[in-house]
Structure formats: structure tokens, C-alpha cells
Amino acid sequence: MAEPFEPKITAFVCNWCTYAGADLTGTSRIKYQSNVRVLRVPCTGRIDYMMVLKALHKGADGIIVSGCHPNDCHYTSGNYHARRRWMVFKKMMEVMGVDMRRITFSWVSAAEGARWAQLVNEVTDQVRALGPYSEFRQIVGAGIE
């Protein structure tokens, strides 16, 4: 009997809202599943789509990209630029046939500790149900000696 599948979830979060929100989850002692690995950047504006591609390359089964709600960006507009980028990126990925159920974009503020826990749990459960992203893992393996 093989071990049950535990998805690998990579999260890209901004320092001022979602990272702080996740800190609040901790301060409030709200529990969530431990699959997620958080990468901290200053702003969602910094989140290059290359990072998302590399996370998939490295075998992430699910990805969370999260930052400040519109209007709340610490840098005033980084999240608006990010939003446009995601809108185009998402469509491009769909055209390529990537399974976008595995990439979740969200806004989690510094005050939303409970929401962060809920988001991580939802994404983890959803991706666990989807199973490993074998389609992508296959091509990563292909042709590399």
C-alpha cells in the first residue's frame, strides 16, 4: 500500500498583507495543513510569472499567489499591476492547456489570519483531490538525462 498522496503547495505572498496575515494566523493559533511552503517577496508586483513556472518545474502540485486587496497595496499599485499580469498569464496558461485549478490567486490582508488558514486548507484539499500534477511532472522528466 503506497503512502497517501500529500500535495506540494508553493505560495508566493507579499510581505505586507498576506505574509502578515499568515503571521496573524500563527499569533491566533489557528491550525492549517502543513503542505504549504511560503516564499516571501515585498509585493505581488514583484511576483514574476517565471517564479510560478519554476515552481511547477520543481514539482509543485498546487500554487498560491496572494497579496494585498485592491486599494490596500503597501506600494499603492503593485497589486494592480500584478492583477493585470495574472489576468493575461492565466489566459496564456489556459491556451497552453495547463490545469489552472492548481493555481490559486487571492487577496489576503494582514487582518485576515483566519482567511489564510482557510485558503491554505481549501487549496490543499482541492489539490489533494486532484492528485499529483503528473501531466507536468512527465514533461519535466522527459528528455532530461
Binding site: P42, R46, D48, H81
Partner: peptide, 20 residues
Amino acid sequence: QGCGTCVATCRTKAIDLQGF
């Protein structure tokens, strides 16, 4: 202020953000 929005916009990766 170091948000890094320009970094993600730059196609040639000529811009980089110190510390990130």
C-alpha cells in the same frame, strides 16, 4: 521603495531587486 514591480516587468532581467 523596493516593491519590485519593475523587476517583474523587465523582459531582459536588467532590473533586479536588492534583497529579493
